[in-house]
Simulated scan of single mutants.
Amino acid sequence: MSTSHDTVTIRPITGPDEIPLFNRLPYTINHELDDDLADKRRRPEWMWVAVRGDRLLARVAWWGRSGDDTPLLLDILDVDDTAEDLTEVAQALYETAAKQVLAPGAVPPEYGRFIPADWREDPDAYRAVRLRIGVLENTGAHLTVERLRLEWNPAAGVPTPDRRLAFRPVGDTDELIALMTRTLDGTLDAHSRGDLAQMSPHEAAVKHYEQEFATYSSPREWWRIGTLGEDGEPVGFVVPARNAYHPVIAYLGVVPEHRGRGYVDGLLAEGTRILAEEDVPRIRAATDLGNAPMANAFARAGYVNFERAINMAW
């Protein structure tokens, strides 16, 4: 299907052969799109362009877990930032594509975008970010959170372990969900707080486990529970893993009664150690801009804030 908007053609790409066209607009994940299509995390009918003649003006794309029938995230919305104001074109592109990609009446998937760490200080980056936010605000979306994207590399060294803690692999799924349920008490994470406004802590923990932890192909044996000495009570847990793109610290939580004692550093050190022993070139992580305790823990462990991300929801 294609439609015209003031001589602009809006249509999905035809297949992998049009990735070079789609990638004429720069973005940090362009190099992943070929593999995403091959591994069915994307589909051509989820990737749309707005063109005038042979010039790419704007593009939009959704992402899902491998083989999903419906997308989980809107993660690409771009315009030619060197051109005239293309706000109207981008909005027409999004609205046209969304009508075809999303089920009628469904709440659109969340929007997520990676942005420069200094985007507020860089006038060009600020203008580009604000344009994309504005396009989606015009469709009813609102900004929910800004997050720090973090990276550790071997040159930073493995953080010093906390000798107060012992570690053991996670037992069964119920044990992990029970611990996660406890760590959600007082959480500073915006997504978790959003879940808790709609469901119980246990339900939120189950949702997170099923939508994220259960999808990892990396060994479950990497997941660790930190305890006060051998056979002591748990203070928290850490989930080192590999997602489809990078080794990651997927989750880290300290139970409420043990917060404020620095155990977060030991949990993060253990998760980093496990991945470092796999000779990984980097480890990625993320935390909300407003979660200063977690951001500070990552900084102490040698993780660098190389980028940020924004999320919007309808």
Rank of each mutant, 00 (worst) to 15 (best):
R182H: 09
P161K: 08
E175D: 08
R149N: 15
R168S: 07
P154K: 11
T160H: 12
R182Q: 12
I177C: 04
L176H: 07
G157T: 09
E151Q: 14
T181M: 07
P159E: 09
T181R: 06
V170D: 05
P161N: 10
G157N: 09
D174N: 05
E175Y: 01
P159N: 08
M180T: 09
N153W: 08
T173D: 05
R168L: 04
R182Y: 03
T181K: 03
D172P: 00
E151Y: 06
I177S: 01
P169I: 03
P154F: 14
V170P: 00
T181Q: 07
T183E: 05
T173Y: 01
G157S: 07
D162G: 07
A178Y: 00
L179E: 00
W152T: 10
L184F: 13
P154S: 13
E175H: 03
D162K: 02
L148C: 14
V170G: 00
P159M: 10
R168E: 09
P169W: 04
R182P: 02
A166S: 07
R163W: 02
F167T: 04
T173Q: 05
F167R: 00
V158E: 05
L148M: 13
L148R: 13
A178D: 07
R182G: 04
L176W: 10
D172M: 00
V170M: 03
E146I: 11
